[in-house]
Structures are given as C-alpha cells and as structure tokens.
Design a protein around this nucleic acid. Structure first.
Lengths: 338, 338
DNA sequence: CTGAAAGCGCTAACAT
DNA sequence: ATGTTAGCGCTTTCAG
C-alpha cells in the first residue's frame, strides 16, 4: 500500500503538498493538484486512518455498549436502534464500535482511556453497573438509552415514554368501558417496568378507577408461569375484562391461554401488548399494542452524543423521552360482562 | 492523559523500560518493575491503541458489514450472530466495527485500504454487489455469512444448511403420511430459497413423491398476498395436506388463514416454519419448525476469519454448512383425508 | 503557492 | 538489565 511520502516522491513534490490535496486545502496550484491526483489514482493511495488518529488525538469512532445483547426481551429493537445510530455516525464519518462483552476483564471504560473511541452510547446498562463509575471518572462523553433511572438527571439519557404508553393503553380501554384492568408489566427490577406502573396508577386515577393490587402481577417476560397467573386472575370474584402485557409475546401467550380457558378475545376479554414486534400483526386476532420507534431512538441518542462530543452541550445533562404510539388492531373491544 | 514518556520521566527510567513492563517482557528487574507499576497506577496511564496500531501496521479491528440490517426477514438472527462474532473477537483482542451503510459514498472495501480493519465479515451481501469487486482487489481477508452462492467455491462462506432443513421437514411430513406438500419458500431471487427448493425436490424424489409445480408458490416473505395463495391451493382438486413456509411468521399467518377457512391445524392440515423465532413456541398450536443456531454461525465465521488473517488458511476457500434442527411442536400431525 | 522539520505515542533494533 | 535511536504515516508549525 502506498504512503503519502511515496506519492510525493512519485509526483516530485513535498509530502505537505500532497497532504493539502487530500485534505482539500485551497492553496494549491490547479495543475499541481491535477498531477498529484493522477499519481494518487495510479498508486491507489489511501490515507491511513490510524496515523491520522494519532496526530489528531481523536479516535474517529464511537462505541455502542450493550452487555445484554442476546437477551431477547431487551433486544427487540436492537437492529433498528443500531441502524439509527449507524446512519448518524456515518454522516459524521465516525466508526461504530460494537461492544457486547459482559466480562470484567476488559471493561468498557477502557475504550475511551485507550483512545479506541471518542464517546459511548450505553444500551440496557444496569443502573448499578460497577464499571459505570470508572466511566464517569474518565470523563468520557456518553449517552444512555433503553434505560431510564427514575429521577436521575445526572446523565444524558434517551428512552421511550414507557409511562405514557401505558397511559394511552388505559385510556383506550377506559373508552371501551373497561374498569377492571389487569397488568402483567414484567419483572419489578426493571426501571421501564416501574415507569409503566407509574403510568398505570396515574391513568387509573384520572379515570376515577381504583388500583386493585390483586390485578397487578409482576413476572419475568419469558420464563414466568403466565398460565397460572391468568387462571388465578380469572377466578377472582371481580374478574378483569382486560390484560395489559409487558411485551407482545406475553400478550400473544395470554390470548392463547384465554382461548384455552374458553374465553373469546376481544369479545369477552381485551388484550394489549407493548412494543409492536413484527409478528403482532400476523396473529389472530391481530394485537393492539404500543409501538416504539427504535430507529428514532438510535438517531436521537447518536445525535445527542455527537453534540456532547463537540462541546456544544455544556449545560446540564438532558433526559429525552420519545413518544410512543397506540396501534389499534383487533385484540381490544367493547367491555362485555363475562 | 499520561503518555509513556511522562511515565518514564516520573519513574526516572527510559521509555523502553516502561514499554517492557506494559508488554510483560521478562527482562526487567523486579523492583524496577514494581516501581514503574506504581507510577503507572498513580498517573492512571493507558497505552494509546492508535499509536500501537500505527507501529504494528495492524488495525486491531474487524468489520461486520450488513447492508440489509433493518430488513426484518434477513435479520432474525442478527443479534445472536453478532454476539457469537463479538465473543470470538473479544477473545482475540480485536475490536468489532459495525458497518451498516448501504450508500456507495463510502464503500466497505475502503475499510481495509484505510487500515480501519484487518478483515471483514460480510452478512447478507448480495451475490452481485458492485463493491465486492473492489474488496477482492484489495486482497482483504473476508468471510461471507447468511449468503451462499450455489456452486461458488471461490470464497470463504459460512451458512446454515437450508437444503437440509427442508429435507428434514419433508421427511417428517412423509413419515406422518403426507404426500401433497405445498411449499411457500420465499422470493426466488434469494440463494437460500433456491437451496431450499433443491432440498424440496431431492426429498420428494427420495420418497418417490412427484413434484407438483402448482404446489410451489414463490412470494415475498412479508409483503406477499399469502391469503390468496392459500385459498388457491385449497381449491385444487388434489389439495395439499401440509404447508412448508419460508419463515415462521409466514407459517403463523398461514395457520390463521387456514383457521379462517375452516380447517384445523394440525388435524386437517400440517404447517411448518423455518428459523424458530421466539414467538413460534407461544402461538397456538405451537409451531413445528427448523432451528438455525445464529450464535454458532457467528462463532464459526469469526473463527474462520481469524484463521484467514493469521495466514494459517493458505489452501482453497472453505464453504462451511451448519447443521439445522427440526423442532417438533404441535402444528404438524398425521395426515387425514380432508 | 510550496517545502523542511518537528512530533503525535509507541515499538523495534541495536547498543551499553 | 536498561537506554538510545529511528521510524510507523500523517499533520502542523514556520519558512521560504
């Protein structure tokens, strides 16, 4: 592979002149420039990114850290978020370094210290991750996404409006006459789940409906015993007429269980999901659910990070909450006495 | 941030001695080493990866190129494949550069020429992609995955055994007495689909069953008019008693359509999917399907690339076909006369 | 408009 | 066992 020096020699000029041509600096004679361009073409020269990085002191890359990649429930949007991030970075000529390690052997805060990246986007990062401290100490620019600590205004964060999604769901059901709305929001240790519960309580209050604790069932998204929960709920004296589920797949599962138990969806019971995964439109009845825009989340987070790196964000950390959307399909309907 | 030189000065030794300590070279006196380590700790020194890369001539990174990221049907395993790749690269201290651009503005072959990576893994790369030529010319080590050209033994390739998966499906159905097996393999322009058709023909032949062209329906995985196709097929004089679908979501869709038309699955008709996505176990009836191991695909491709980069693979390009597995659930059963 | 020299932070030869 | 010197390929002063 040719180097700047070789190009300079072949063209009979100094390295600096070649450098000027590559970097589109104006003060070069037109014919000199032309000649140099030809030599570059001929030698198939390409600037060496590593050398540039060394001189500039910038890595020219951003890390996307996601220790939970591979855990299905956290990664339904991983693709689309990544694509959003990639588009923005690409437009800014930044490389995207994907960092999925869980191990403590090479913690992600090293990425910045070792000049491998200029900033980080942290996805699904546990609130109390031990490496987070080192990251803060290193002063690395970083933005969190798919994570939102309650009342944590000390970090830059982008996430979907989990609470708002549930509020929309409850409003939708209330408008259909439902009053006894069960919720299976997911495991209690997730912040997103706690935010949704906040939305649930708030929305019920707005409609003057009581919060009935027996209708709130925390369980793992995928490993929980959904059937037992559904059976329990339907044996209550005052049965629920609608189910809010933490993820679409759980909602699909609930619909099947209800059918097994002899209930019709949505005639007897309404069911709502969260996330709007692809399959939700193909099941029968098609699932009413809350859609998050993963692509937009990625774009927003990456844009924020770039602003942060460029120093144009000197104020206090920002927390951005992205709107979600109710996708109304066929799994919800007018309340009927069961 | 501290540099080698600063550490050397602070410790009262030469840079080379510090360098020796960092690189765990043996010929350093124990007490000198100890002292230097303390200074490193104190100054919070970290080696600058860019400078090392410049000296060594290696980028210390591998690109994963996936221009199709975001297109659902091609990316059901994207997460798990990525995780497999990431694990292997991490163990070899290589960074993972994710490259999702489609644009021709900065083609992926530049990644190698500009020393941003030492090798590439290409996912879902169209057979006739225009940039592929430049890549070949650049002599960059590269491995393809999620792509398999028929009879192309000029590249390094890792992919699932699409043909074998369909053979297993047909064997399973034949054992249940099915003879009229419809197939909706997906769009004809995909190599994976053509390989599946090859498996279909081969398996039918083995069982002495005729290939009936009217039972073969190519259509897009997600945008095709599945309902019309199913209706058409069920109006044939000699109806199919089983459906092989190109992806699980199509199979789920087909099951719903059949139910709408008054058929029972699997009592009247059997349905099989391909891929085993998470939801397939939650639908009712749970879907019988073919499982690919995405993680293993990633591990295999990354390992092959690393071997290739290290020069230990001097022979002819290798094509690795990964085994798939039949996951038998409840959507397939004994043939019954409809 | 163009060039010479210095240096980014590190490693690799060769001393000592 | 430790130090000196010379680069890796590029950009950036500062002179012509």
């Amino acid at each position: 592979v040719a180097t700047l020096k070789q190009v300079a020699e072949a063209a009979g000029v100094s390295v600096k002149t070649v450098s000027r041509v590559i970097n589109h600096e104006p003060e070069v004679a037109a014919n000199t420039r032309q000649h140099i361009l030809e030599v570059i073409e001929e030698l198939n020269y390409r600037p060496n990114t590593r050398a540039r990085a060394l001189v500039s002191g910038k890595a020219g890359a951003v890390a996307v850290v996601n220790p939970a990649a591979g855990e299905a429930h956290l990664n339904l949007f991983f693709d689309s978020v990544l694509r959003g991030i990639a588009e923005v970075l690409s437009a800014h000529k930044l490389d995207l370094l994907l960092y999925l390690s869980r191990g403590d052997d090479s913690p992600y805060c090293e990425l910045f210290l070792q000049k491998r990246v200029d900033g980080l986007i942290l996805m699904n990062m546990p609130f109390d991750d031990p490496n987070l401290l080192g990251l803060t100490e290193s002063n690395a620019p970083c933005v969190h996404t798919c994570y939102l600590a309650e009342n944590d205004n000390t970090r830059y964060v982008v996430d979907a409006d989990h609470a708002g999604g549930i509020v929309m769901s409850v409003n939708h059901l209330a408008a259909l006459g439902h009053r006894d709305i069960a919720i299976l929001p997911g495991p209690d240790n997730l912040i997103a789940v706690r935010l949704r519960m906040e939305g649930y309580r708030r929305a019920l209050a707005q409609h003057g409906l009581p919060v009935r604790d027996e209708l709130i069932r925390h369980l793992e998204f995928y490993s929980g015993d959904v059937r037992q929960i559904v059976v329990d709920l339907m044996q209550l004296e005052q049965q629920p007429t609608a189910f809010l589920c933490g993820v679409d797949l759980m909602a699909i599962n609930v619909m099947n269980i209800l059918r097994d138990l002899g209930y019709r969806v949505p005639d007897d019971i309404s069911v709502l999901g969260f996330n709007d995964v692809v399959v939700s439109q193909y099941v029968s009845p098609a699932l009413t659910t809350i859609r998050q825009d993963g692509h937009r989340k990625g774009v927003t987070a990456a844009t924020m990070l770039i602003d942060l790196m460029s120093g144009s964000l000197d104020g206090a950390p920002q927390q951005v909450t992205l709107d979600v959307e109710l996708i109304q399909r066929s799994s919800t309907g007018q309340r009927n006495k069961v």
